[in-house]
Design a protein around this nucleic acid. Structure first.
Lengths: 203, 203
DNA sequence: CGAAAATGTTACTGGTCGGTAACAGGGCCG
DNA sequence: CGGCCCTGTTACCGACCAGTAACATTTTCG
């Protein structure tokens, strides 16, 4: 029996493949990543990959699903951290997103996929759409709970700022407009919370 | 001599190739578009393409350059339409961008390219960066001329909203948050113009 | 242990990719 | 006219792509 004191129980090939795929998709793009490279990075092989996923597209969908689940988990953490305090959840959400804009590993898998999956019928597109709609509903509910008058308007304002921050970070770098995202978004939240019915528009 | 009453002087192969490339890049993505398809769509051939561009990457850069030039031309039109009136130029700019969010042919070539050109050293990336920096400077100058107190902050707010609207339109559709972009952005401009020093924050 | 299930290895297919060589027209201008 | 430059055509290259078949190995678990 060999010493196994440093043997970490390796995750299943399936998990390794998904994780490797997400990483490569982020770094090299979806179309720029071949299944061979994924299998290799996962320390597995192409056959095992195709035993778990009928096609590369199916793997793409699974990756997007995981990304969505992670976001759902984050929403849950926010609720547990500030139970019932919608305003605090909103502000913490924004602050946390802003923290990810500093490094280059921007986790905008949904947006990236939306740009790269040009086929209108790609199954990943409906998943993205469903996730985004659900996220919008959730933020609207949170705004309502926070006592925001026009919850939908603040929601759309924040969603535009967030996606804009992610996109701008990719094109203008970390010192571009996205550097002031936290400041701008938080000001918007506080403005609406104070009774405004739009950016700087008093009721 | 044949009747040439309907003979439109065809543009040069070079122009046709660039135009076809931009169209295909928009519709099928950069990596999803092959040079054969470009040459075919341009009603030309691959050899002529490679006589004008040493590589596909060089063609990509030219396409991005054209996109930037078109934007520059639009800024010029704005100045001519509302000479000296920075505030009006800003608002018209926003309104015009919003008008393009309704159809699916969203002209976010820069953002799309920034996502798809994953190679950090791709020559297109520096072009995008330079263009975005110049655009930011221009908007800042316009805000100053419009008498905005914190010109930089309004600029970054607008840039985030704009890029966010484009990105959101691709992931959430035309009925998503981008549908209210014009309303949100115009409110931000008016808020800053009224003396606010941030979204809803009075001096 | 022993069998079944999961995983790994090698080699292969047909197709597409970016890019090139050799050659054949075609319009323009002296 | 005759030469020249631009354009078009065909065929090809090596590399990579997604996906599969056949077989060997390891892991899991009754």
């Amino acid at each position: 029996m060999t010493t196994d004191f440093c043997k970490k129980p390796r995750r299943s090939p399936r998990e390794r493949i998904i994780e490797a795929a997400r990483d490569l998709f982020r770094r090299n793009g979806i179309r720029g990543t071949g299944v061979d490279a994924i299998a290799d990075a996962a320390d597995s092989n192409k056959m095992t990959l195709y035993r778990h996923f009928n096609s590369k597209d199916e793997l793409i969908v699974e990756c997007l699903y995981r990304a969505g689940m992670e976001m759902d988990g984050f929403w849950q953490e926010l609720e547990e951290a500030h139970p019932g305090d919608g305003l605090m959840q909103l502000r913490t959400w924004v602050r946390s997103l802003a923290a990810h804009l500093d490094d280059d590993s921007c986790h905008c898998e949904m947006m990236s996929a939306a740009v790269q999956l040009t086929d209108e019928d790609h199954p990943g597109r409906s998943l993205i759409r469903t996730f985004k709609d659900a996220q919008r509903d959730r933020v609207v509910a949170l705004c309502h709970k926070a006592g925001i008058a026009d919850a939908e308007l603040l929601t759309d304002t924040l969603l535009l700022l967030i996606e804009g921050a992610r996109a701008t970070q990719k094109s203008s770098g970390v010192m571009g407009p996205s550097a002031r995202f936290a400041e701008i978004a938080d000001a918007a939240i506080l403005s609406f919370a104070k009774g405004d019915i739009g950016i700087g528009r008093r009721a």
